[in-house]
């Protein structure tokens, strides 16, 4: 050959000069062809709604009013913050998040400790424990609704109530006909715990399995008690994974509680189980379709979640540096 190949572009030129129709496109073109459709879709259904809803949160827009959005500044935010009902709803959400995450953590840890050592059928047991996590929250909500039913539900039957008029009506927050505030919230929390404890267990189990045996052996030789071993070896070693579990569960309990609560109580009785995700839905898609105000509320929830996550992640990093 008389020409000297100097660089890679020359190689590409030589190659593309050959009669191969498949090589007509450069690598860069192929790359772009693959990326652009995804990018367009992402912008259309993710980025645009996000930005547009931020704009809407400063307007009085309603999706069914057939009117152009009018800029109202911070009015929506002011209304949300001054609405006394909102504080009640945030307090309900707070209780829901706190109790369900705490219970999931305790039970998940206990379950993880139980299935940590191999025993006959431990693989099957672990798999069975994970089943609730794989179900759709709406389906879970619906069949728990049936199980909680005061006349034919399984829950009261198992608890030993034979007379429906003396038994608790969980989702209506009534005990033998008397109003018992909090019962419905607890009923929903129990289902959330039932559904998501396996997830926490799975994370903690992976942490437990990563603890090397020789640490326990060293501790046994150093005469550490079982309690001491738990506090000084087991717990510190799984804390980072526990923090991740708490982070995920907190975020999800904040906004994904929607499916479960809607499926079981719709926020009722009254507003007893109305968590913020349900309020959002009601404001946006029921009654007056207050799209602007709902957007403002959604952004406030987002800010709260980002703030909480940041606190967790900072703590987590500090723990990792300290370890």
């Amino acid at each position: 050959m008389s020409t000297v190949i100097k660089s890679q572009t020359d190689v590409a030129k030589v190659r593309s000069a050959q009669p191969n129709p498949r090589r007509d496109l450069s690598d860069k073109a192929i790359r772009n062809i693959f990326i652009f459709p995804t990018l367009v879709l992402l912008i259309a259904i993710n980025v645009f709604p996000l930005v547009y809803s931020l704009y809407l949160s400063f307007t009085n827009y309603s999706a069914i009013a057939n009117k152009q959005p009018v800029w109202v500044g911070f009015e929506n935010f002011g209304r949300v913050l001054s609405d006394e009902r909102m504080w009640e709803i945030f307090s309900t959400t707070g209780q829901y998040v706190l109790f369900s995450v705490a219970l999931q953590l305790i039970l998940g840890f206990a379950l993880a400790m139980l299935v940590r050592d191999k025993f006959f059928g431990s693989g099957l047991v672990t798999t069975l424990i994970l089943v609730p996590m794989m179900l759709s929250p709406v389906v879970v909500g619906l069949f728990w609704k049936l199980m909680y039913n005061p006349t034919f539900g399984y829950v009261n039957y198992l608890l030993g109530f034979s007379n429906p008029s003396l038994a608790p009506d969980w989702l209506a927050s009534r005990w033998a006909g008397d109003p018992t505030p909090g019962l419905a919230l607890w009923a929903v929390i129990i289902v959330d715990v039932w559904m998501w404890t396996p997830f926490v267990m799975l994370l903690i189990l992976s942490g437990l399995k990563a603890i090397p045996d020789y640490l326990y052996e060293a501790a046994a030789i150093d005469r550490a008690s079982a309690w001491f071993q738990f506090w000084r070896i087991t717990l510190p070693q799984v804390t980072p994974l526990m923090m991740i579990a708490i982070l995920f569960r907190t975020i999800e309990a904040f906004n994904k509680s929607f499916d479960l609560v809607m499926g079981m109580t719709g926020g009722g009785p009254g507003t007893q189980t109305e968590v913020v995700a349900v309020t959002l839905y009601k404001q946006a898609f029921q009654g007056q379709w207050q799209t602007g105000r709902a957007s403002a509320l959604a952004y406030m929830v987002l800010i709260i979640i980002i703030a909480i996550s940041n606190l967790y992640i900072r703590n987590l990093n500090r723990m990792k540096e300290g370890a």
Partner: peptide, 21 residues
């Protein structure tokens, strides 16, 4: 006797230090 009661000291190949302390 359990390892604790035998009162031996063991130096492991992998050091086996308690990592958070």
């Amino acid at each position: 006797l359990t390892p604790a009661d035998r009162d031996v000291a063991f130096v492991f190949q992998q050091y086996s230090l308690y990592p958070t302390m």
